[in-house]
Design a protein around this nucleic acid. Structure first.
Lengths: 339, 339
DNA sequence: CTGTTAGCGCATTCAT
DNA sequence: ATGAATGCGCTAACAG
């Protein structure tokens, strides 16, 4: 591997001069600069980032923790984050945690070891205490989809409660008679808020004989399919039209799959609402009615806020931000007026 | 940031002793070891990976280049690669190239700078010459979905030709009368092979009046939707049942979308076959008939081969591998017998 | 078993 | 404008 010494030797200058032209900041005479550039080119020299980082204390990389790359919400989120970071000269190092707190910790440890300059945490299992410890190390952190009490941590959330409420309201308005909500993982504020929204709406609107049930499930497709299956096996609602609110789109796809397997017609016999408005929602069979959150905006915003923190001076006190983005109902084919 | 010196001071030992217990290889007395471990714990010490990498010349990270994280084929591929690497103590650094050669080069440069120990290249625009230059630097490389002439580079491919052939055959057997193939990007061997398979099959089987056309398109959903739209606008095949082979699933989804928009019934009036058998293929509307490649296997295999190269001794000569994985037709709802 | 030392590749003073 | 020297945090001889 060719080092700065090789370049210096070839260009007949000192390594400091080479360093100067590489980093373009200090004054270097025209001729020496050209000599260095030529040497760099001829030797195909690429500076060793580890050595650079060791002295500058900056790695120009950001740790991004997500729960599942293969989940469309996260993969799209990563894409928008990565895009934004790149234009600022930073690189995203992605950690796929599979919803496990243990993995998250391993990754954080590894990323700290790798000296990332900041974190975007879109993975939700970590304890608040742990995240706060992280913040104490003075590494800028942006947290997505969580509630954290800290004035060092920036938080971006969406209005999950409203989304849950709207989903329920829509299902009621469609005329479904019995309602099921597949709850997301309990350790998650987002899931909790969506459920709360759903429940509140149900309590306010239900009349004569209408009823609802909330089943604990997850954000993963297969698990929701199973939950749905076991519920339908035990209970017979063939006579009633059921409205189902899944905690996210992946879960809704699982529901759709199970309904199809049982030849329960959507939206005639059962209506399904998801959450996220993942790219694929419009392609599912039938196209999914869902709550839209603009994923690209969330990704862009989180990267922007992080970069802001990265670029601030030591003594600049930038107050931690706490954003709350809006959501909206998108009606497609998995629900319809049924009365 | 706490360093090895702080730990050494606190534990009343030299930094070498600290280093020894951190790396668990050399002999350290029971008591000193405990003292170090306690200090590490109390100070919450995490070694600086940049410094470690600088001296060991290993970063324990692998550069993984993909064309689009938000594409289900790639996101699932990344997931399986990451899983395999992690169990071996390596971490994946993902580069999202958006199908642009320029971006690929930028990423490779950056990853070399970051001293990655190896590459998995699943991004396809790079010139063969460039990849070979990379290999000359003696960095282990595994290339996916490409043909490269080199005895240093491991290659994993699938039988794209067979897939294309089978897709065409199936469409013909279903009884469709006019055939359209939306070709993938031309700079891609995979797309070329799929097209060749399609074409060969057509040539062999077509009789009296049947006909086919190959349109250049891409692997991206929107573009294929547009191609499909402009073709349908110019040509009127209302009277004929058309069989469509899209170069990959994403493209097929785009086709499905356009067909739906025009109220062309699938599979009655038009049949659609994709390629990849992405997770969502079974959820699309209608569920997609496609060519299955087992993505998880490809990911796992590529990581395994790379790790093999990473772990070999200097003088071990491991011959570059050249794997070719099989594919199979999966029939779902987007095609059916129509005669 | 343990401490001292050199050096990895580089940015950054400090002289000149 | 430029070179010599220092040190970032760590591992790996080396000596004891």
């Amino acid at each position: 591997m060719v080092s700065i010494n090789d370049v210096a030797a070839r260009a007949n200058v000192s390594i400091s001069t080479v360093s100067r032209v590489i980093n373009q900041n200090a004054n270097v005479s025209r001729e020496k600069e050209e000599a260095v550039l030529r040497a760099v080119d001829e030797l195909d020299y690429i500076p060793n980032g580890l050595a650079q980082g060791l002295v500058t204390k900056k790695s120009k990389s950001i740790g991004v923790l997500i729960a599942d790359v293969a989940n469309l919400y996260y993969s799209y989120l990563v894409k928008s984050i990565e895009k934004e970071l790149r234009t600022a000269g930073y690189y995203a190092v992605i950690g796929n945690t599979e919803w496990e707190a243990k993995r998250e910790k391993e990754y954080i440890r590894h990323l700290i070891q790798r000296q990332v300059d900041g974190f975007i945490l879109a993975s939700t299992s970590l304890s608040e205490k742990y995240i706060n410890q992280l913040a104490e190390k003075d590494i800028p952190i942006v947290v997505l989809d969580r509630e954290i009490k800290s004035d060092k941590i920036d938080i971006i959330r969406i209005n999950d409660y409203k989304g849950g409420y709207q989903a329920a309201e829509h299902l009621i308005e469609c005329g479904y008679e019995y309602f099921i909500h597949l709850k997301g993982p309990g350790f998650t504020v987002t899931a909790a808020d969506r459920s709360r929204g759903f429940k509140d709406c149900m309590q306010e609107h239900l009349i004569n004989g209408q009823n609802y049930v909330m089943l604990s499930s997850s954000f993963v497709e297969e698990e929701s399919a199973k939950k749905m299956a076991s519920f339908l096996e035990k209970n017979n609602y063939k006579n009633k039209k059921i409205g189902i609110f899944a905690a996210n789109d992946a879960s809704a796809f699982g529901v759709l799959k199970e309904l199809k397997r049982r030849r329960i017609k959507v939206p005639e016999e059962a209506g399904v609402v998801g959450f996220d408005n993942v790219n694929f929602a419009e392609y599912s069979s039938p196209a999914l009615t869902t709550i839209n959150r603009s994923i690209a905006d969330v990704g862009k915003l989180s990267a922007e806020i992080l970069l802001e923190n990265l670029n601030k001076d030591e003594n600049d006190v930038v107050k931690a931000q706490n954003k709350n983005l809006d959501v909206e109902l998108i009606i497609r084919e998995s629900t319809a007026q049924v009365n």
